[in-house]
Amino acid sequence: MEGLCYIFIFCTLVCSAAAAAVADLHWHPATATWYGSPEGDGSDGGACGYGSLVDVKPFRARVGAVSPVLFKGGEGCGACYKVRCLDRSICSRRAVTVIITDECPGGYCSNGRTHFDLSGAAFGRMAAAGGGGQLRNRGEIPVIYRRTPCKYPGKNIAFHVNEGSTDYWLSLLVEFEDGDGDVGSMHIREANSNEWLEMTHIWGANWCIIAGPLRGPFSVKLTTLSTGRTLSAREVIPRNWTPKATYTSRLNFNF
């Protein structure tokens, strides 16, 4: 089976047998606010480093910033949550699904609070029909939340090579990770090597390695933070890679 994957798709997917599902059946209390324009998509960029991805589908209008307890120094980037308003007088029972793309370190998000700062569009979707504007006028509201698997239909995991990368300093950003959405560790393997080299988490959803000269093509292995599931994409970054380019694998986590 492994040989067939190498021949036909040049990738290997390994799922930890002991991994638990990321979905949380229990709801937890939190608070929520909104930012940006009332019907807007939220932040442009953000502390996770996704850049312009936050302005287009599937991120568009589903992005959110979280307090440090959920941001986890950037390792919480990419995680998905369902958030539901508790005020029955103005809110529907519908939960909105948001993707963590940013951090809100101060104000409502300080002092160890669990807080979501949502795009105006995502915040308004929790309201009963026609009540989006009225709900936004409330400002801070009590909500409940739970983790939920990320779903990017038709998308496979991609690796963006960050600007400034060289043969001696290589930095990667993971995009469109189904399931857990978060990354706990990353490794790369050079061409004609059996050794996986550990990358270092630097900020947001960005990882790097200082070594060299590094010789592509590179295979990339990532392990999720939440459940420890592992995925390895063989030679996903080509020999003639360039900074600011994005290389898409033929794999994703299946949930």
Rank of each mutant, 00 (worst) to 15 (best):
R84F: 08
S37K: 09
T97S: 13
P68R: 12
V96P: 02
Y35C: 04
A21I: 04
C91A: 02
P29F: 02
R62C: 08
V83D: 09
R84T: 05
D24N: 09
G3R: 14
R94M: 08
A121F: 15
E75V: 11
D102S: 04
C11L: 04
A30W: 05
L118R: 01
G45A: 08
A122M: 09
S43A: 15
K82F: 13
A61D: 14
G78F: 14
D24I: 01
A18P: 02
E2T: 06
G74W: 04
L86A: 00
A47K: 11
T31V: 07
V22D: 09
D44L: 07
Y35G: 07
D102L: 04
L70T: 06
V83A: 13
K82C: 04
P68G: 11
T31C: 02
S119M: 10
H28I: 02
G51K: 09
P38Q: 15
A122K: 12
S89T: 05
L4N: 12
E103A: 05
G112L: 03
S16T: 09
V96C: 01
D117M: 05
V54Y: 03
S92P: 00
T114N: 03
V63H: 00
P105D: 09
T97N: 10
G40V: 14
G49W: 15
K72N: 06
P38W: 15
L86F: 01
G112E: 04
R60W: 09
R60S: 15
G78M: 14
A122V: 05
C48G: 09
R60M: 14
G45S: 07
A32I: 03
S67K: 09
T114R: 07
P29W: 03
S110W: 03
A65S: 13
G120F: 14
A95Y: 07
Y6D: 09
R94G: 00
S43W: 01
D55F: 03
I100G: 05
S92V: 02
N111C: 02
Y108C: 08
C15H: 06
P29V: 04
R60H: 15
A30M: 06
C91I: 03
I9H: 05
Y50H: 03
L53Q: 07
L118S: 01
A18M: 05
L118I: 01
G112R: 02
F10C: 11
A21S: 13
M1S: 14
D102Q: 07
S67T: 14
D24R: 02
G36K: 07
A30G: 15
C104R: 08
F116R: 02
A47I: 06
A32M: 06
D55V: 00
H28W: 13
N111L: 14
F8T: 12
P38I: 15
C104K: 05
V63Y: 01
D41P: 01
A20V: 06
L25Q: 06
G45M: 11
G120A: 13
G120C: 13
A121Q: 06
R94I: 07
V69H: 00
A61K: 15
G112N: 04
A21M: 07
C5V: 00
G51N: 12
F71S: 07
G40C: 10
G51T: 11
R93K: 13
V56W: 07
G3E: 13
A20H: 11
V63W: 02
I99K: 09
F10T: 10
G73N: 10
L70R: 15
M1H: 12
